[in-house]
């Protein structure tokens, strides 16, 4: 348990100070490619921001997020020494306190009293074959979380309907979600499964693609269509509106076609470790 707490703590801090290479690469490429002068200037400032954050241990963004934790537990693994959930939340508590990260969590959505230690996190468990434990920590900022949507399409809407929902969501988010954004999409499943697919899609490396050919094509097509919206860096115009689009699909019901679009800002944080 102590090992889990220690790892979660380190991962919370690491995620908030340093972007993973895949996201950083896309941001750097975008800064080179952006043609609009103001857009380019903003992307250059975002690059400089990453350097300062790394060198001086200042969080990349002041919204250090709600800690989303994905736990994949091998079914042969037996964890001893107390509650796994408590161990994870203790790691979040230590990470956010000792790492000088912002405490953004309120204990109740209506009475809104801050818990002052950024707990609890949102924890998703998955039991998988094997004897390893995989942890992913993805602190999620709410500027972009607030602009995310789920739509229950009709099967007749088909793939064109899905494309419309994705584009419309990015348009509605506009400057509010801190573009350039990363777009995580879930298609299929049930209401909650679809949202979870979209969240998981955000933790997939941006230089990867879905293995299903039509989904891969959809990822590429949507990235290009989103960038053609010209929302641009900070919503002030330009060809860089998204750094990547990741899509996950799952079987669904004969009557449904759920689509969830989880928007993330350019500070798309995720750290993964295998224990």
């Amino acid at each position: 348990m102590e090992e889990i707490t220690k790892n979660i703590k380190e991962m919370c801090i690491e995620a908030n100070l340093r972007l993973s290479e895949d996201v950083k690469d896309r941001l750097f490429q975008a800064a080179d490619a952006e043609e609009k002068p103001l857009g380019k200037q903003i992307l250059e400032q975002l690059k400089e921001n990453l350097c300062i954050a790394d060198a001086e241990s200042i969080p990349i963004c002041q919204d250090t997020g709600m800690a989303v934790v994905f736990v994949r537990i091998g079914q042969e693994v037996h964890i001893e020494g107390g509650s796994l959930e408590d161990a994870i939340n203790e790691g979040i508590r230590q990470g956010y306190t000792e790492g000088y990260l912002r405490k953004s969590i309120v204990r109740d959505p209506i009475d809104r009293v801050n818990t002052k230690d950024n707990t609890p996190g949102v924890i998703h468990y998955e039991i998988v074959p094997g004897e390893q434990l995989e942890l992913t920590v993805a602190p999620k900022g709410f500027g972009s979380e607030n602009m995310s949507r789920i739509v229950m399409l009709k099967p007749a809407d088909g793939i064109e309907g899905v494309k419309d929902v994705i584009l419309e969501t990015v348009k509605l988010a506009g400057p509010n979600a801190c573009p350039p954004v990363v777009v995580g999409v879930g298609i299929g499943g049930t209401f909650e499964k679809c949202a979870l697919l979209a969240k998981k899609a955000l933790t997939r490396e941006l230089d990867s693609h879905n293995e299903i050919p039509y989904v891969r094509e959809l990822e590429e097509e949507m990235l290009s269509k989103i960038n053609a919206l010209s929302i641009g860096p900070a919503g002030l115009g330009g060809s860089t509106t998204a750094l990547g689009v990741n899509i996950e699909v799952y079987p669904t019901h004969i009557a449904g076609l759920p689509v969830a679009v989880n928007i993330c800002c350019h500070v798309n944080r995720h750290v993964r470790r295998l224990l």
């Binding site: 400032q45 975002l46 001086e56 200042i58 963004c61 400057p175 900070a234 919503g235 350019h266």
Partner: peptide, 13 residues
């Protein structure tokens, strides 16, 4: 005014 979202380390200087 808009400040650049997600550039908190830079702006803190």
């Amino acid at each position: 005014f808009a400040a650049i979202g997600g550039a908190g380390a830079l702006l803190s200087k």
